[in-house]
Design a protein around this nucleic acid. Structure first.
Lengths: 203, 203
DNA sequence: AACTGTAGTAATCGACTGATAACATGTCAA
DNA sequence: TTGACATGTTATCAGTCGATTACTACAGTT
């Protein structure tokens, strides 16, 4: 009768474990910001020990860089998937694709957070590069004019703000939340509302 | 011949000292985010000792709450000052007022940062309240329609992003920065460029 | 079956940070 | 003048966090 050890995580190939940790890290970084997140929290969320996270990624900063790079990748993927169809409705389809990213934990907040860290030498480089990739995609692949691209991104940033503020709970006294949401999500209010956490909730 | 002591800050009424610290704190919080700044950095920037900062404000969190509350106040002030004049150009004047806030260190980044902290119980409340005040000002005092208010705020968030990313330096290889800036600041590119720090600069 | 590289953990360290306590000095009313 | 309050500091602590080291165990190859 061999005693189950089981303190250690089930064995897995390093590449798979990395992907698993990246996914967990996206959620945690998204919920608590880069500086506000500990490598231990990421490790727990991924079901491994804290030193192992550090060993797989070198430093917390490098881990975060991989996280945001991956998030920009994912974002462009879903945008590209929304390209086929009536050309005049590309913007709408891509907007919908953006809001649907809300279900992928941390994806949007992590990108939003990265845009506030342009002053960090390493992270800033990756964040600018990610933003640049989005911009060029909109111009080159989606065929947006500069003005259309500006408008699209501005709306995305506004959505990030609504999400970050947790403006989707019941704060009738604080904000005319319904009006804000109606104005910001013309026809996706209900969906967005159900996808978002309220204030204080762990996301 | 009395020996100058001078290790201590020149005496000042507590109310004035608070205001001085709040100003310094806005700059530091704006440059390094809430979690990323230490009370000691704020104290140094204000020229006082670290324990005195926490004694005057109780906790770091309470200090930050006063900072963002003050920032939303200030923002509404400059918006209100831009109201008088041709009604059809109110939006332009307020947009200009917003970009001119860039010279007041930390004012814009701090507000941007606050919108990412809606999940924090205390800070989130104040951030939502600040956002709400802006929204109501736009609707009630500036006479914006919901759609106009949405558009105005979205543009502001985009500006915050540009600023946060430090997209104003020379990153010709990373981004068609000029095109982005042209699209985002139709007629204020040069002014904005001179007001913003480059990546790595301390702001 | 033994060897070797890979996957993973426990223990721990040094640096940092927010907060507290105790103390010092300046100001002002009576 | 004196005493009482307000302004401000030094010293220090207890907790936290990222990173390092040293170790264990599993898996595949020959």
């Amino acid at each position: 009768m061999t005693v189950e050890s089981v303190p250690t995580a089930p064995r897995m190939k390093a590449a798979d474990r990395r992907e698993l940790i990246l996914e967990a890290a996206t959620a945690v970084f998204g919920a608590k910001t880069y500086v506000g997140t500990t490598t231990d929290e990421v490790a727990r969320a991924a079901g491994v020990s804290q030193p192992y996270v550090v060993r797989l990624f070198g430093t917390k900063e490098k881990l975060f860089i991989e996280v945001i790079d991956r998030a920009y990748d994912r974002m462009i993927d879903v945008f590209r998937a929304a390209l086929p169809g009536a050309p005049e409705a590309v913007g709408d389809r891509m907007g919908t694709a953006y809001t649907e990213l809300l279900v992928e934990r941390g994806m949007l907040p992590v990108v939003a957070n990265s845009t506030a860290l342009g002053g960090e030498p390493q992270i800033g480089r990756v964040a600018r590069a990610g933003f640049s990739r989005i911009w060029r995609f909109l111009r080159d692949e989606a065929g947006f004019t500069p003005e259309q691209a500006r408008e699209f991104i501005a709306t995305g940033m506004l959505i990030n703000t609504i999400v970050g503020l947790r403006l989707t709970g019941d704060y009738g006294d604080e904000v005319s939340a319904t009006e804000v949401l109606d104005a910001c999500f013309p026809d996706a209010v209900e969906k967005v509302r159900t996808l978002l956490p309220a204030a204080g909730e762990p996301w």
